[in-house]
Amino acid sequence: MTVHGIWSYAPEFDHPEGHDLAGYSVEATDGTIGHVDRQADHSGMRHLVVDTGVWVFGKSVLVPVGVVARIDPESQKITVECTREEIKSAPAFKTDRETLDPAYLSTVGSYYQGLPPRGPA
């Protein structure tokens, strides 16, 4: 992925601390994956919990902010540097307790860091 780390936004985003991304749609490189249900920053591991809605019925996924390629506040859309299949194949997210589990977050981070690099969106 990118040099800035899997748990940090790229410096060019200048993402304000208090800016809530809940409700923003999330686009993979090959289509919509859902919308941001909530965002979190536990122990410096910033991530989004994305509700995949009808795409993967009843499932949410945890997405580290380091894969965010673009944030468009005007259209309330976030683009990530992953395909839909890569998001779907990420370690399963079952409960909110996992957002506090360092072992689970480490597994998620390793998965996303192992994805092939992509160019700018």
Rank of each mutant, 00 (worst) to 15 (best):
D37A: 04
P73L: 06
S60C: 12
S110K: 10
H19N: 04
L115F: 12
P11Y: 14
A69W: 15
S75H: 14
D14Y: 12
E81Y: 06
I78H: 09
S75N: 12
D30Y: 02
Y104V: 00
M45K: 01
G119E: 15
V63K: 14
G18N: 11
T83V: 01
H19G: 00
M1Q: 09
M1E: 11
G58Q: 04
E27W: 09
D20A: 08
S8W: 15
A121H: 15
G31L: 01
V56G: 06
L115W: 13
A40L: 14
V49K: 10
A90Q: 02
T52I: 03
P64G: 04
A40R: 13
H35R: 05
G31T: 01
A10N: 13
E98D: 11
S43P: 01
P102C: 00
D72L: 06
I71G: 08
S106H: 02
V36H: 11
S8K: 15
G53N: 11
E98H: 04
L62C: 08
P16K: 10
S43M: 12
P16M: 09
P91L: 02
V61Y: 12
V65R: 15
L21Q: 05
D30C: 01
G53T: 07
D14P: 04
V65G: 04
V49M: 09
G31W: 00
R38T: 08
Y9C: 04
K94S: 07
G66T: 09
F57K: 12
V108N: 00
W7E: 05
S89E: 07
A90P: 03
A121D: 15
V56Y: 12
D14T: 12
I33F: 01
R46E: 04
V80Y: 12
T52E: 12
A103N: 02
E86P: 02
M1C: 09
G31S: 02
P120E: 14
L105Q: 00
E17R: 14
D41E: 11
D51L: 01
Y112V: 11
S60Y: 14
G23C: 06
H15K: 11
R97I: 02
V3S: 10
P64N: 08
E81V: 00
F57Y: 13
T95A: 13
G66V: 11
P16H: 05
G53R: 03
S60R: 15
H19A: 11
R84Q: 12
E27N: 08
D20V: 09
D14F: 13
A90C: 04
P117F: 03
I71A: 11
P16E: 07
R97P: 02
G5K: 05
I33E: 08
D14H: 12
G5Y: 06
D37S: 07
T32A: 10
Q76H: 04
H4A: 09
W55G: 14
L100K: 00
H15D: 08
S8R: 15
S25A: 07
Y24N: 04
E27A: 03
K88R: 06
V26I: 03
